[in-house]
Nucleic acid binder design. Structure first.
Lengths: 396, 396
DNA sequence: GATTGATTGTTAGTAACCTTTACTAACGAA
DNA sequence: TTCGTTAGTAAAGGTTACTAACAATCAATC
């Protein structure tokens, strides 16, 4: 690592990115053989993860935390410093016997992550973040009426603009896309964008030369909530917007589902008493109760505040009814809502929480925590950034 | 390994068991450091798994399947043969050029697994199986009115009887228990047995000197369905009996839940139109619709076959309503029912399947397969055996 | 029937990895 | 100043899996 800080933007960043793609492959996958090399990169990832989560650790601290010897940790850290992923912050200044420790940290500003959110209505949003998920730059692009291949081009253009603005080597690119996205980052189906079997991940990787990871927007949001929102190992994140989607973290891992369609709760029928007809043809889907356009229409038709409260409470109740079996079957620790605060927070949220409590076996722990996300509008891009952190550095 | 086949039952089996407990620790856990030794045991487990799943593999076949070199595989196989876990079956007799291969296999009858099912009404059942899950011996014990510490003693006694009947070293003991069981095999709560925070796994391990694994009965059943029933990587198994419970396999892994209570769907309220009052105090729990005693009572009250069909269809519909949100959120590939065939198979099952189809987004794959288990009454003990296979040998 | 090519499994040597043991450096406390 | 403690490094050793090379064995071919 020679010229850190002196590189010239996108081109070099991209080049560095491809290097890192190869070198940072990490994390032992279940079901795969373990060669010494793989073991090493797994341990490297553990060190990074520990550094990522705690601050002000020394080599000796790491040895205690990870379980490897000080010798091995020193060796691993030397590697990581050579790769510019870890830096020495200096000598720890505290009054203890013994040689003072050298404090290490992940080089949090030494690399950039580019993250995209394609889930907005007629708008693509993207950010550049550091390794902490701090947003450094923002870009957006109007894509009204843009679909199909043109939409892919638009994504690529927005991506290029962001990469150009990154002032550190780009570690990777994360994309949260609407629709159903498979393991390989292929968008199997995204009606609003006119996409069907679009290999977005491969396309963008080929065009930029950077490591790219594409996932469903709600799934990305669930990852963000887990990593930056402090959510439980068993968490359901519900995104309410034009439609209703969800992302599910079970046992600390994102659920993909048998056909990569996990989280599709918007078109599950709620209750046994009918409801409005949905665009999908069924009657009483969760979306007909909860999607923002329908909710707003119902609120505007309301006569007074009491009436409006009843509308919100009913929507929350329907959400709770729909979610309760999932809470019970998975024994979820947390249910998090993401969407317009003015509509969701308060009456609707409380109603959903109360419904879940009354319809499930509230165990000794009083059932799951039900709350709004604290990550706001950036939740998807932050999730996309987590995907890069996980995929490139093995940090969970 | 000297005296295989000549040992004298329980005592030696137990002694061998404890040996194996130490030696067979396997499988790289996420979040743990990887030492060369751990890597080795992970690779050993991969070899075993491959041998377990396919038959008639040679060392060269294993090398191709696992991805390690023939040299390394030979070394690992030599280890496994020394431990009596693998045997050479002889020379493969087929007409191919090249040196004929030596066919290997797991020593399927060289070790026994003891598995217990505590979920029956007033009855403990147990079996001895070989590594294939073939039941070699059965024992049962009436435990009418036996609860608390006496019930623990009864389990230990049944276990001792089974271990004594094993005519091969016992690899380990698996137990499927009703109630909520945590990660450490402590039964947090099992009202029917009067258990609360009973460290069953530790107690039995201490009394027998064997490796013991305790889990919830429905969870064990889900594992059995996955390993022996050929179920999907994303499967919900529902057990219908006196109560209604479930076990959930997501991404090939058993779901434990935030408070080890995953699968507790019996006391989730179904629908929005009331129902009978449940023992838990709520109205319209799934158990009030589906539990066998209630179902039978309703069938007896029916006037004719049409009426009885309606009762079964209604029960199936309620099950479908309850399960639909889980199917949607997890994108399940399969839903499997376990319980009395005469009641569940047919009308009830079909009704549940149809309800799920009509209430969820039947994707291009036509929604999850809904079927009865093929494992019958042994499903829980087989699941307990899988726990031992996984825990001791790393076979999934 | 001899030769060629393919396949299996083993032996020998090498590189990578983590560990143990032992050391130096640096500091507070007695 | 001496002692005990902690951090980090160095050297040696054992384990692991790899590459290269080889013997054994068989089918196909000349």
């Amino acid at each position: 690592m020679t010229q850190q800080g002196t590189h010239q933007g996108a081109a070099l960043a991209a080049e560095r990115g491809t290097q890192t793609q190869r070198r940072f492959a990490s994390v032992v996958r279940a079901g795969a053989r373990v060669t010494p090399e793989r073991a090493r990169s797994h341990n490297r990832a553990l060190v990074l993860q520990e550094l990522y989560r705690s601050e002000g650790l020394s080599r000796a601290d790491l040895a205690r935390a990870v379980g490897l010897t000080r010798v091995t940790i020193s060796d691993l850290v030397a590697d990581l410093i050579a790769d510019d992923l870890v830096i020495e912050l200096g000598i720890r200044a505290d009054a203890r016997p013994g040689k003072p420790a050298t404090v290490l940290d992940i080089n949090r500003s030494g690399f950039a992550i580019v993250a995209l959110d394609l889930s907005y209505d007629s708008l693509f949003r993207g950010v550049v973040t550091d390794l902490d998920g701090t947003v450094l730059h923002r870009e957006h692009m109007d894509v009204t009426g843009v679909t199909g291949a043109a939409a892919v081009d638009a994504v690529a253009e927005l991506l290029a603009r962001l990469v150009a603005r990154a002032d550190a080597p780009v570690l990777g690119v994360g994309v949260g896309s609407p629709g159903i996205v498979d393991d390989a980052g292929t968008v199997l189906s995204a009606p609003n964008l006119g996409w069907s079997a679009v290999a977005l991940q491969d396309t963008l990787a080929a065009r930029t030369g950077l490591p790219v990871l594409v996932a469903n927007d709600a799934n990305a949001a669930a990852l963000a909530e887990r990593t930056f929102g402090g959510a439980d190992d068993d968490t359901l994140l519900i995104r309410v917007g034009r439609g209703v989607g969800s992302g599910l973290v079970v046992g600390g891992r994102l659920v993909r589902g048998a056909h990569s369609a996990a989280g599709e709760i918007g078109h599950v029928v709620v209750g046994t008493d009918g409801g409005e007809t949905c665009a999908c043809g069924k009657v009483g889907c969760l979306e007909t109760w909860l999607a923002i356009p329908r909710l707003q229409a119902r609120l505007e038709a309301a006569r007074d505040d009491t009436d409006r409260g009843a509308v919100l409470a009913a929507a929350g109740e329907r959400l709770g009814i729909s979610i309760s079996p999932v809470v019970g079957a998975l024994n979820l620790g947390e249910v998090v809502l993401s969407g317009p605060l003015d509509l969701l927070d308060g009456t609707l949220l409380d109603s959903a929480a109360e419904t879940i409590r009354s319809r499930t076996m509230a165990d000794s722990h009083g059932g799951p925590a039900v709350r709004m996300t604290t990550l706001g509008r950036d939740i998807v891009v932050l999730g996309a950034a987590v995907m890069v952190l996980t995929g490139q550095l093995g940090v969970f």
